[in-house]
Design a protein around this nucleic acid. Structure first.
Lengths: 334, 334
DNA sequence: TTGAAAGCGCTAACAA
DNA sequence: TTGTTAGCGCTTTCAA
């Protein structure tokens, strides 16, 4: 039989109510002396709070639903690790739900699973909800926060400033002398993709560089999208640099470029967005815009549980540019 | 205010107890007719069971702790996805804990976090506990199950038959004409590593092939371990085939072989163990022993919750050999 | 600052 | 097959 607050109350010769108040940190209802005594006894007895009992009466639980897109983005795990550690720290449990990418039904199913349980909040990791499912989420009144991928209409999220990512990636390549720069692999319908392209356009325009439509190759952030993009560019492309909008996209471009006998970075510079371990296990290693996914997860959960009462606001995480082997100064025009 | 069994009882003109029994599928205590009626009403009213209340009285909760090694094995995510879906299916929540690889303190911390909560069971994913920490786990009396990595002394686990993996990997290469075969990257202290090497030795011995000590290069399953192993073999190695004991190890070998001007598979065949997506994004694509990590996770949770009463027994998952581009028939002796 | 009483929603034990 | 009673461990009134 586990230790209860009654046991502590007996040992301390006070009522269970006071013990409860002390152990739940309800201030202003007890003296420091009794508090100290109670805490000491609790510790000695090895008391563990029965959360089920507490939840039953408070009608609040400490479960966060985490919905992850099962897409091959390969950075979700880092985010998850951050969320997990943060959850431990703040005393929350997790319901993990994986949804199939680009599958509204799967999304809907996940959301309904959540509705079926009393949960404290929802974290949506690299997930693009359909409008319909987003409405469903909003009607639940459960606090939610998007991580890494934002939705258009001002829903709170933690992620990177994707406009800045696109802008700075482009500027980095321009600074290396490139003028014919492509961007590839991002989803046309995603906010994140639109922002990156907007940043790219802005940088090009600012330097009065023209952009050809075909330089912008949309996709779905996957390895396949990278392959397709490079095939579309073709072996005779005039581009001297390409921004791959995910590590897998960039690797797809890299491998396809090799098939087309384009050498990286001599003939073609590649700059990848994400900066996961993948950038370092391919040859050449990929220069990248590196995001701190762990922190996104960690801060995401923290924000959700700390601000659930107030309105959640969006928050950008810093990123950095790391130069590896896939980019180089443009020597001469091809 | 949420719907409770009382509301249903009122609507159905019966007692709450009967409703409880029906909705909890306690058989043999009610007629099919009332059951049907109750279920229908429950559905119409949108009834959701209050798990906190149920847990309070049954003293059983539905939380599974999942402890994952944060090591760069890159297959943990698939296992996790399986666990997550399985948990949804069987109605369990998850506490996710990441521990640092090869860090007994981190392990201990995770275990103690678990002890602090009433949980139903523990799943340990690709984690090698120290003896001391394993003792700690055993003393808790909480059911546990290892996934993907086994411990020596007969603790229950779900994973692959690593002896068979080593054995069949070696036989595959022998069948291609190789006689000088190395194995690299596995941890010397891990059961999994020992088993794979044992399988390798057995296969070689059966074909009366000699093994040189230096053909067996231990490591820690990481990318770095692969690099180091290939450096140790050297450019002038007599080996014509190497088994990399994880995808990352094999990629490390691959990249280092390239640096040493050894071409794969013409001069050196590589066979990888794991078969994650990584095998397909490097060039050449890696032939592999492919394990079904998703199923390991899915079945693992299932086994834990279904057999918690009885003694859990170990269970092997099937694996398959998939030939890609990194292995080839041995043409001539080098 | 402390406590008594009541009840959260559910299920186990017993009774009918 | 169904119901009555009691209580899980905690927190929230309300009263002292």
């Amino acid at each position: 039989m586990a230790i209860t607050i009654k046991d502590i109350a007996n040992a301390a010769q006070i009522s269970a109510v006071t013990v409860s108040r002390i152990l739940s940190n309800k201030e202003g209802h007890y003296s420091a002396a009794t508090a100290a005594k109670v805490r000491k006894i609790a510790k000695n007895l090895g008391y563990r709070k029965n959360f089920a009992a507490a939840e039953l009466v408070t009608r609040k639980n400490r479960v966060i639903a985490v919905i992850v897109s099962a897409v091959k983005t390969n950075f979700a795990e880092k985010i998850l690790e951050g969320i997990a550690n943060s959850a431990i720290k703040y005393g929350y449990n997790i319901v993990l739900l994986y949804v199939k990418p680009n599958n509204p039904q799967s999304q809907r199913h996940a959301l309904q699973t959540i509705l079926g349980r009393l949960i404290y909040g929802v974290l949506l990791v690299s997930l693009e909800l359909t409008d319909e499912n987003f409405q469903l989420l909003k009607t639940t009144k459960i606090p939610y926060l998007f991580i890494s991928i934002a939705v258009k209409d001002g829903a709170a999220f933690i992620g990177s400033d994707d406009f800045q990512i696109g802008y700075q990636a482009t500027n980095f390549l321009i600074a290396q002398g490139h003028t014919k720069i492509g961007i590839a692999g991002m989803s046309n319908s995603s906010y994140i993709g639109q922002q990156r392209v907007a940043g790219y356009r802005h940088a090009m325009k600012k330097q009065q560089l023209l952009i050809k439509d075909r330089w912008i190759q949309f996709g779905d952030f996957t390895y396949q999208a990278g392959i397709q993009a490079m095939k579309n560019y073709g072996a005779a492309t005039e581009l001297t640099a390409i921004i791959g909008t995910s590590d897998l996209v960039t690797i797809g471009i890299l491998n396809t470029a090799a098939e087309l006998n384009l050498s990286v970075p001599q003939q073609l510079s590649l700059l990848s967005i994400d900066g996961t371990q993948l950038t370092q296990i391919v040859r050449p290693q990929l220069s990248s815009i590196t995001q701190d996914f762990y922190q996104m997860g960690y801060q995401g959960l923290r924000a959700l549980v700390h601000q659930a009462e107030k309105k959640l606001k969006s928050h950008y995480m810093p990123f950095q540019i790391i130069e590896r082997q896939s980019t180089s100064q443009l020597k001469s025009k091809r």
